[in-house]
């Protein structure tokens, strides 16, 4: 079982911190509720913060889901907007966090009570979600909002082609160089269509920046589809004799934007984390998400990730591998 919390409040998000030791916890912005709800599994526990919403409408729409999807819903009501709490429970809701209760953390004991009340089972994974702890600096109009020398929140995508030595040994430097150039041009066009800008280039490694905007799920789907289709990319686009398995790291962090010529001089904790992770943490050929990204990915994609070891104080998730060549 996973626990999902939909809230726009950092304070509400932090109420659930004490569950991290025992449960897999995802904290999302509330506007991701509609796009995420269909992919949350039956038996999962979902808390929804209703602050500022019209409670009656919310009650009607969520009660549909309660019956339909067998999801366990809890309501967070920081301003006591729900008139009849008992009606919530009659409709199938399994928890209600009141105005008084938000002064205290949500404890594993409370979840245990819900489990016994609703009789559902839980695995014991822990996922840290740090996006709500960040000081997000949005660029609502994408690159049009970005000014040089100012700090913004970006999705930072690190991409490294791993098969360089293998290709050089078997097919020579010239062929390998042409493949690296093709990869770079392709990524520039592919991620460019998703508002990504090629910021740093270093031989077989590239770094893209995507300005942070609400609901920018296309980045995750774009990377996911790119990796899904790596056979087609390798064979048809690159004309490579081997399937390429790039290393990709995606992190949400704040960076002072400098133009591409000066990008190498930009200093930030986020860039340090990515370069350190790329050099000394990752297993080559995998796709990693940092803890700041977890809260932004749709659950449909989260399903394809599993927990990876921590690094430099950050939790990471790694994408499950597509199995090619299995006789099973």
């Amino acid at each position: 079982m996973n626990i999902y919390v939909f809230t726009n409040s950092k304070k509400i998000g932090s109420l659930f911190d004490s569950l991290l030791k025992d449960y897999e916890l995802f904290i999302y912005k509330r506007d991701m509720f509609n796009t995420s709800i269909d992919s949350i599994n039956p038996g999962d526990l979902v808390y929804y913060d209703i602050q500022g919403l019209e409670a009656d409408q919310l009650y009607l729409s969520i009660s549909d889901f309660v019956d339909k999807a067998a999801i366990n819903f809890g309501i967070i009501d920081p301003k006591s907007e729900i008139a009849s709490i008992s009606d919530l429970f009659f409709a199938g809701f399994c928890d209600y966090i009141s105005k008084k209760e938000i002064a205290y953390p949500i404890t594993p004991g409370r979840i245990k009570k819900i489990r016994s009340y609703k009789n559902f089972s839980l695995p014991d994974k822990v996922i840290m979600n740090n996006s709500l702890r960040m000081n997000i600096k949005k660029a609502d109009k994408g690159w049009n909002s970005i000014q040089e020398g100012k700090e913004y929140s970006f999705y930072i995508l690190y991409f490294r082609l791993e098969e360089v030595t293998q290709l050089q040994n078997h097919f020579g430097y010239k062929f390998t160089e042409s493949i690296i150039n093709t990869v770079r041009d392709y990524l520039k066009s592919y991620f460019g269509a998703l508002d990504g800008k090629l910021w740093i280039t270093d031989d077989n490694k590239v770094l893209f920046l995507f300005p942070y905007k609400d609901n920018n799920h296309n980045i995750f789907m774009g990377i996911f589809n790119f990796l899904l289709n790596k056979i087609l990319f390798s064979g048809e686009t690159l004309k490579s004799p081997v399937i390429v398995n790039p290393t990709i790291i995606l992190h949400l962090g704040n960076v002072t934007y400098l133009n591409e010529d000066m990008a190498g001089k930009s200093v930030s904790n986020s860039l340090n984390l990515i370069f350190h992770a790329a050099n000394s943490y990752v297993t080559p050929g995998n796709f990693y998400l940092s803890d700041t990204v977890f809260g932004c990915i749709p659950p449909t994609i989260a399903f394809f990730f599993r927990r990876a070891p921590s690094f430099e104080g950050h939790d990471f998730m790694i994408m499950k591998n597509q199995i090619i060549n299995s006789q099973e």
């Binding site: 056979i231 390798s234 064979g235 490579s240 004799p241 081997v242 399937i243 394809f304 499950k320 591998n321 597509q322 199995i323 090619i324 060549n325 299995s326 006789q327 099973e328």
Partner: peptide, 26 residues
């Protein structure tokens, strides 16, 4: 090349020689 890696011999228990590509995840 790539396609020969992706399509591997498949024992279908039927006569004939076949190759298969499956979409699977760990």
């Amino acid at each position: 090349g790539v396609l020969a890696s992706a399509f591997i011999p498949y024992d279908s228990k039927k006569s004939g020689s076949y190759f298969i590509y499956r979409l699977q995840w760990e």
